[in-house]
Amino acid sequence: MCLGIPGELVGYVEEQADLGVVDVAGVRRRINIGLLVNEDLRLGDWVLVHVGFALSKISESEARAVLDYLEGLGQAYDDELDALRGSDIS
């Protein structure tokens, strides 16, 4: 199962303007933020991440609600975090 997971933008990749670094439940990964070029993304903003892309900017309260729900899924959520740990956009 592939889920859209909220991640907090914690950095940018200087050499590639369309890449950012998000933190998802303690897992940090580079993701493509190019789809949100017009969203004025700032460090600390929350985005919905799916297959390595930030699909939309979301509020912190929405991110928390989604994370709480996903944690309740148990194994599916754990599997998604394991997949995220094993991925990297370089």
Rank of each mutant, 00 (worst) to 15 (best):
M1V: 07
C2A: 10
C2I: 06
L3T: 01
G4P: 01
G4D: 09
P6I: 05
E8Y: 00
V10D: 00
V10C: 05
V10S: 02
V13R: 05
E14I: 15
E14G: 13
Q16N: 14
A17N: 14
D18A: 11
L19Y: 08
L19A: 03
V21E: 06
V21T: 05
D23W: 02
G26N: 11
V27N: 01
R28P: 00
R28Y: 00
R29M: 06
N32C: 11
G34D: 04
G34A: 04
L35Q: 12
L36N: 04
L36S: 02
L36P: 01
V37R: 10
V37F: 09
V37N: 03
E39S: 08
E39I: 00
E39K: 08
E39H: 05
E39R: 07
R42I: 11
R42W: 04
R42G: 12
R42V: 13
L43R: 13
G44R: 11
W46R: 07
W46K: 04
V47C: 07
V47M: 05
V47E: 10
H50G: 12
V51A: 14
F53C: 10
A54N: 03
L55I: 12
L55C: 11
S56N: 13
S56R: 15
K57D: 06
K57W: 02
I58W: 02
I58A: 02
E60V: 13
E62H: 09
E62C: 05
R64T: 14
R64F: 06
R64Q: 14
R64K: 13
R64M: 08
A65P: 03
A65V: 09
A65E: 13
L67E: 10
L67T: 11
L67K: 04
D68Q: 10
D68Y: 01
Y69W: 08
Y69P: 02
Y69M: 08
L70S: 03
G72E: 14
G72R: 14
G74P: 04
G74H: 08
G74V: 07
Q75K: 11
Q75H: 10
A76E: 15
A76C: 05
A76L: 13
Y77D: 00
Y77E: 01
D78H: 13
E80V: 14
E80K: 11
L81M: 14
D82T: 15
D82L: 14
A83M: 12
A83F: 11
A83T: 12
L84C: 09
R85M: 11
R85K: 15
R85P: 09
S87Q: 10
D88I: 05
I89P: 00
I89N: 04
